[in-house]
Amino acid sequence: MSKIRPAVWAVTIACAFSYMGIGLVDPILPTISASLHASPGQTELLFTTYLIVTAIVMFFASWVSSRIGRKATLMIGLGIVVAFAALCGLAGNVNVIIGFRGGWGVGNALFVSTALATVLGASAEPRRAIMLYEGALGAGMALGPLVGGLLGGISWRGPFFGTAVLMAIGLIAITIFVPYRPAQGTPRPVSAPFKALGDKRMRLLMLAAVCYNYGYFTLLAYAPFPLHEAADRTGWEFSPIDLGLVFFGWGLLLAGGSVLGAPWLSKHYGVRHTLVACLAGLTVVEIVVAASLNPVVQIVFVIIGGGFIGILNTAMTELATLATDLPQDVASSSYSGVRFIGGAIAPTLTGPLSALWGAGGPYWIGAASLVATAGLLWLDHVMTVRRAGRLALHPGV
């Protein structure tokens, strides 16, 4: 097994800090809602705006990095995140914070998409690189809620300032450890990431990624509200730190699933069997939290869901990114953009769905989207087997 380069460690650590930006708002959503007199729908826009902007900009990240180089793109992305995270902490109106979260999403998109391509390009073993990247995602998801809960217990502004400091540390690490290499080859056209959609198999896998990430982000973005409602019904006092600890446990299992669970299960049972089993497990989790407003049930099953999500993240990324011959930066832009689209849709719909069908409504739809993911992966398997059969009969085709 080859030694992991310092540049790879620097990028993955910065990735962990970057993904903290998603999870850190979870524990402070109810606090922001109360402090700034914002509706749950407005506070959910802190997720939605960030994710939509991230998804859109990710499709163009390869266009930027092919012109100015990966290191410069990483540094610009991190610099933008530092600036807008600090501005969120200084804001005094929820609508202003929503706008700044959009700016934050621009920096996050440039950084995250380029980071995956950088880690893949700097590693001799693509599967190990994906494991490290998804492990960093899990670590960030674990630390984000904990930092959000700890600092949010002081002020809702604290998590934003804390993230700005951590991202600045990541920026310094990349400045020092990632070697500068000018952009090489022909610059990518703006349309390059969309070429992945021209491949029938990639279209199917990306649609599966949208459905999966919808179910995943339903649990991540919506869970604080049913948890609070369940606690209120039983007379519990659920503070930001309590919520942060719940999502810290969720993130720990996510990180463990990404780094340990996914490689072991994929090696022993195959990527597809691993995906189907974990999709079934996550579907059960969302059905249980949809059906029960018992706070203990909510806490336990939200945390368990993190383990399934960690395994699924790594396995889905491996299946999608290794299914194409496109350049790494183009494939990374395409897949990263698509997965964030699914994540952006979920918080947008949780408000209307909970108003229509009660606290469990969003989870029922999330569970249905996970079932749809399994169906799409089965269809991909059938198409892959048929294609292999045709190639065996007609090797020259």
Score class of each variant (00 low, 15 high):
Arg5Gln: 14
Trp9Phe: 14
Ile13Cys: 02
Ile13Asp: 01
Ala14Pro: 02
Cys15Ser: 15
Cys15Asp: 12
Met20Arg: 02
Gly23Thr: 10
Asp26Phe: 06
Asp26His: 06
Thr31Met: 07
Ile32Asn: 01
Ala34Glu: 12
Gly41Thr: 10
Gly41Ile: 06
Leu45Gly: 02
Leu46Met: 15
Tyr50His: 07
Leu51Tyr: 06
Ile52Arg: 00
Val64Tyr: 07
Lys71Trp: 02
Ala72Leu: 10
Thr73Leu: 04
Leu74Asn: 09
Ile76Lys: 07
Ile80Tyr: 04
Phe84His: 11
Leu90Gln: 05
Val94Arg: 10
Asn95Met: 13
Val96Trp: 10
Ile98Val: 15
Arg101Lys: 11
Trp104Arg: 02
Gly107Leu: 08
Asn108Gly: 05
Ala109Asp: 04
Thr114Pro: 02
Leu120Ser: 06
Leu120Pro: 05
Leu120Phe: 07
Ser123Asn: 12
Pro126Arg: 10
Arg127Gln: 15
Arg128Asn: 02
Arg128His: 14
Arg128Trp: 06
Ala129Trp: 07
Ala136Trp: 04
Gly138Ile: 04
Met141His: 03
Ala142Gly: 13
Gly152Pro: 00
Gly152Ser: 03
Gly153Trp: 10
Ile154Ala: 14
Gly162Ser: 00
Ala164Val: 04
Ile169Phe: 14
Ile172Cys: 14
Val190Asp: 08
Ser191Phe: 09
Leu197Ser: 05
Gly198Val: 01
Met202Lys: 00
Leu204Asp: 11
Leu207Met: 15
Ala208Ile: 10
Ala208Trp: 01
Ala209Pro: 01
Ala209Tyr: 10
Val210Trp: 00
Tyr212Glu: 08
Tyr212Cys: 05
Asn213Ile: 12
Asn213Leu: 13
Asn213Gln: 14
Tyr216Pro: 01
Phe217Glu: 09
Leu219Cys: 11
Pro226Gly: 12
Pro226Ile: 09
Asp232Val: 12
Gly235Ser: 09
Trp236Thr: 03
Glu237Pro: 00
Pro240Gln: 06
Ile241Lys: 07
Trp250Arg: 02
Trp250Pro: 00
Gly251Cys: 03
Leu252Pro: 00
Leu253Tyr: 02
Leu254Asp: 13
Ala262Arg: 09
Lys267Thr: 04
His268Cys: 03
Tyr269Leu: 14
Gly270Glu: 08
Gly270Lys: 04
Ala277Met: 11
Leu279Gly: 04
Ala280Asn: 02
Leu282Gln: 12
Ala290Pro: 07
Ala290His: 12
Ala291Gln: 05
Asn294Lys: 01
Gln298Val: 06
Gln298Lys: 13
Ile299Pro: 02
Val300Thr: 08
Gly306Ala: 10
Gly310Arg: 05
Thr314Asn: 13
Ala315Cys: 10
Glu318Phe: 04
Ala323Gly: 00
Ser334Lys: 00
Tyr335Leu: 12
Tyr335Ala: 08
Gly337Glu: 09
Arg339Thr: 08
Pro347Val: 03
Leu349Arg: 00
Leu356Pro: 00
Gly358Val: 05
Gly360Met: 11
Ala374Asn: 11
Trp378Val: 13
Met383Cys: 14
Thr384Ile: 08
Ala388Asn: 13
Gly396Lys: 13
